[in-house]
């Protein structure tokens, strides 16, 4: 197992809130340049796990290593782009003001900031709505703006918590196309989802249920191994249903 290729290393991670166990002994390696999907029903622990990877939470037991260093680590944060499940946007401000604010937090200087803002807004097809107040955005537009903010500083690792909720199929496809082109440029992407057709687009999948990682592999492999006809069926078989 070379450290070079494994950008994310989750080592025997458990998390409990009091007596309530949320994550249970999860061990997983994610290598550079792959799109890794965490698939599972809501409440399975996906968000808790990706929050730990983003440095916003710590495991009760075990540890997470990103780029070979233990999380949380303030110096690693610049390499991570994080998009939370809820749209963390300032509704009173325009999209542009939101973008400028976050770009400044990541230290983007004036010129680079302008360039990146137009690039990411193009990517999520919001260029025409740049100067609108976020409070006038629809749910799907807010989701896309959150994604654009996560992409601003060109992170090596993207952690996206349910990135395409509330986005229509056409836009969803264009966003996934963007993920693929980011991946081709060497970006590693971690997404959580409970949508099965989205799961199929990941290079590898980790199926999570009740805080346990019940299966890891490529979508094809998971289907074949269980002799299932779809990811959905495979998930149910792994879950013991």
């Amino acid at each position: 197992m070379s450290q070079q290729n494994n950008i994310v290393s989750i080592r025997n991670v458990s998390k409990a809130f009091g007596k309530h166990s949320v994550l249970h002994e999860i061990t997983l390696e994610i290598s550079a340049g792959e799109i890794f999907g965490f698939l599972g029903p809501s409440g399975a622990g996906k968000t808790t796990l990706v929050k730990q990877l983003a440095g916003l939470d710590t495991p009760t037991e075990g540890a997470n290593f990103l780029f070979g260093d233990k999380m949380p680590n303030i110096h690693l944060i610049n390499k991570i782009g994080y998009m939370a499940q809820s749209d963390a946007l300032y509704n009173e401000l325009t999209a542009k003001e939101n973008l400028e604010f976050f770009a400044s937090l990541y230290g983007l200087k004036h010129k680079a900031r302008k360039k990146r803002i137009s690039e990411v807004m193009e990517l999520v097809s919001l260029t025409d709505d740049l100067n609108k107040l976020v409070s006038n955005y629809s749910g799907g537009m807010k989701r896309r703006l959150s994604l654009a903010i996560a992409l601003l500083h060109q992170p090596q690792l993207l952690i996206l918590d349910e990135p395409t909720v509330g986005i229509d199929p056409v836009l969803r496809k264009s966003i996934w196309d963007a993920f693929v082109s980011l991946k081709e440029n060497g970006t590693t992407i971690i997404v959580t989802t409970h949508v099965m057709d989205e799961a199929e687009k990941c290079d590898r999948l980790g199926m999570i249920r009740d805080g346990k990682l019940i299966a890891v592999g490529t979508p094809n492999m998971l289907v074949q191994e269980t002799k299932a006809s779809s990811i959905e069926e495979a998930f149910l078989i792994y879950g013991g249903a």
């Binding site: 916003l56 303030i74 944060i77 994080y82 939370a84 937090l105 990541y106």
Partner: peptide
């Protein structure tokens, strides 16, 4: 409550 604090803390701000 809107999650922007968490989003802030996911950035390099101290």
């Amino acid at each position: 409550t809107t999650g922007t604090l968490e989003r802030l803390l996911a950035s390099p701000i101290r």
